[in-house]
Every structure is written in C-alpha cells, then in structure tokens.
Design a protein around this nucleic acid. Structure first.
Lengths: 223, 223
DNA sequence: CTACCGGACAAACCTATGTATAGGTCGCGC
DNA sequence: GCGCGACCTATACATAGGTTTGTCCGGTAG
C-alpha cells in the first residue's frame, strides 16, 4: 500500500482503464483507437492473436475488443487460450458475418457482448464501459482473496489443519482430539495462525477460510 | 429445550424435473412434449405467456422452452415479467427468424441457450439438461439461505443488532459498549441468538450472516 | 386489572480461549 | 556437530464466553 505510483508520462491515476483491440484490418484498428481515445480511454492495438498473447496481461481494469475472424486462429481460439492462461479480461466480439450459433457460443463462454458490423459508436462505447466495470469488480475481489491466499500459503501444514478445523467451528479440545494433540498445543497454534493470517478475531478467520473456499468437513450452512 | 423453527418442507417427490413449454404452435408443442417425455422428463405445455403466468411456479427443478415470438407479448416480455416476479427458471429460447442483437439480448438477460429452427433434438436435450442442472443448483442454495433468512427474521430487533456485531468479530464487551448495554446482557442475547438461529458455534453464525449478506461495519476480508 | 412478553441487568458459577515461560524431539542444511 | 524451524507438551495465570436463577420495567392483549 506504500508504493508510490511511478507515473512516467501522464497522471496515470491508479486505475486508468485500457482497451485492447485485436483486428487484422488496420483501418478498423485505427477507427476503434480513435473512438476510444476520444472518450479518454487508453488503447493498445494488435493485428493478430499471437501478438496479444505475447504481451503481458494488463495490470489495470481492461477489456478486449476482438474481431471473431482473425488470421490464423479465430477469436474463439484466443478466448479459450486466454481462459486456459487464467486471464479473465472481458471480451467484446465484433463480426461482419456472424450467425446465431456463433453468438450463443461466444456468450456462453463468457463474452460480455457481440456486435455486428457496422458497429454503432455508442453501442461499442456502452459495451466497453460495461466490460471495464465488470473487470474492475473482478479485480477487486481477486485482490482481496490473493492477500489471504498468500498468507495461507505461508502457514505450515499443521497450522493449516488446525485453521480449517477451528474455522469449521470445533472447540480447541475437539480439534485436539481430531488430530491427536493436547489442547494446549492447539491453543498455541491458534495464536500463531491468528498472527500469521492477520486476523483480529475468529470471525475474521472464518471469513478468510470461506473466501478461500475450504470447508471439507460438515461446515456448510444448514437449512 | 429446542425452539428451533422446524422448516415446513413439504417433502415432494424427490426432484422430478419438469420442462415448461410455451409455444403458440400446437404441433410444435406436441413435438417438444414427445421429445422430452421420450427421455423421461415431465412436461407442461402452454399456448401463451399469459397462460404460464397464471400457473403457479414449479416447486421442482425446471426450465422453460420459449418461442421468442408469442401471441401478444414476446418471449422477452415474458422473460422480464418472470424476472420481476422473482422467478428464475432458466430459459431456452427457440426462434425461426432470430438475429444476432436479439440473441445477445436474450443471453445477456440470462437465457441459458438460444436455438434456431429447425432445432436438432440433441441440441434441445443438451440445453434442457444444462438448464435443469443449473436450476437444481440454484434451488439448493436458495433453500439453504431461505432457512437461515426465516430464522433471522424470527429474531427481535435487539437480537439482530447483537448478531451482526458479534458476527463481525467484536467481543461481548465491545458489543455492549457499542449498544450501551451491560456485557452480561450481550451474553444472554448471544445465547438466545445461537438457539434461535440453530448455530452450534460462532463460526456457524458468521457463515450464516455472510450468506445473508449483512456486514455493514468493517467486516469485509482485508488484503 | 392481570398475565404475558421482550428488554435489561446482576451474582454466581463453570468452561473455553489466550498467553507467557519453559521445556522436549525431530530432520535438514551447512 | 550446530543452528534452525516445525512440531509437541506442561504449568500457571488471565480474560472471554456462556448458563442459571432471579429481579425489575414497560407495553399490550385479553
């Protein structure tokens, strides 16, 4: 939280959104770039799927504007490649000759919009705004969870065992019995866990474990 | 000893899925009905949006197969009417003369599939199976949360105040200070709350409050 | 008026949790 | 071998959590 923003050129406020364009038609790239820049969005344009896969994934909220017909691989291939690489930038497809099954497929695999040429400027801007908003939200959650996860990974195996049992609602003595330990041992571990995880209360701990999605035993909310 | 509100679940036949068809073309209704029945699905067919809105929402996992062009209102109207009525049955649209914007609109508002006539039987069955699976999952979550919610609503105002503060991680004395009470009072309420909510541990309580989505103070997971 | 309920509190008592101090064993890397 | 970290335990003490029994008050439904 203490890192000063190393803004090189402009006052890149903390989360200046960026639009990534992939289209093999240079005039299309230019037109889109102009459109987005006219409303103050940063833009990066690519001519092929390969090019963008080499670039590093953006660190700010962003979205992808993608012609579905690309040289080499189709937009779909890029979409699934990104998914495999665990990159979840929202995608807006554009197409000249799309059909309904194609649209359904794109939307089902998570595209945020699917526009047909000629694309109306306003439609495109609306779609981009929605996409960026979604990405911003996703990044926020991801970020919180990432902190918790890295702390969890800093725990020893034993500490994790105990964390999970404690967060599932067992008393120290029950945890001890479960693991064949003395109660005092569990207490000591518990203290270590609270410190390492940065939890101020048991409630915090429970929420962290929930956020990590770990609840093997019988720890779900009941009816 | 136990004042646990007993969930009045009328144990219906376990979870016989049902497919709801809305199409103004009788021959289409018949064809779809036969198709679904041939794989052992229960079916109910309607000739118009109005008809199905009068029927009571199904109590088992289900899905809606909906021609987008209906007499009177369009499939979209029905979709949004259902959404307004808080009915979230997954919808599969079928259309003879659809276009891409229509498809996008349907998918964006939550349709699970969008099929074009002539519909291949296997596509339809796949779509229905996916839709019913989704509905089953949704119902499961909904059901758990509904139980918790109804118990929460059985709490007095004071009990709710205290529940929220306790679940946010405050100690009894802090809760007492916050509300201008004696610590002993908080303890007593706390016991009542545990009983009424059917929570065996603080961890349970925290999870319930999370499931209800109540966390006003500073109770979110931190980075 | 009275009975009942929810809210608030107290003393007494017990259990659970948390911390400090003070150990002990093991395995691993240098 | 030595140090280090993980793992495990014990005693002792302090604080937090939780129940029981009983008291008091105010509103309100009968």
């Amino acid at each position: 939280m203490t890192d000063l923003p190393k803004a090189a050129t402009a006052r890149t406020s903390v989360d200046d959104a960026i639009v990534l364009i992939v289209d093999d038609d240079p005039s299309m790239r230019r037109a889109l770039t102009n459109l987005f820049q006219s409303v103050g969005l940063r833009v990066e344009a690519f001519g092929s799927a390969a090019e963008i896969m080499e670039a590093k994934p953006p660190a700010v909220p962003s979205c992808l504007v993608l012609d579905i017909r690309l040289p080499g691989s189709s937009g779909f291939d890029l979409q699934s490649d990104l998914a495999k690489a665990n990159i979840h930038t929202p995608i807006i497809f554009i197409t000249g000759h799309g059909d309904i099954p194609m649209t359904v497929r794109a939307m089902k695999s998570g595209a945020i919009d699917f526009l047909t040429k000629p694309v109306r400027d306003q439609d495109m801007l609306d779609a981009v705004q929605a996409a960026i908003e979604r990405d911003r939200r996703r990044r926020n959650i991801e970020e919180s969870v990432a902190g918790v996860r890295s702390r969890f990974e800093g725990l020893s195996a034993r500490q994790r065992d105990i964390l999970i049992l404690v967060a599932s609602g067992l008393m120290n003595k029950q945890v001890a019995a479960e693991l064949g330990l003395a109660e005092i041992t569990v207490k000591i571990y518990r203290g270590q866990i609270m410190r390492k995880m940065g939890a101020k209360s048991l409630a915090d701990l429970v929420r962290m474990v929930e956020a990590l999605g770990i609840s093997r035993p019988g720890g779900k909310v009941q009816t």
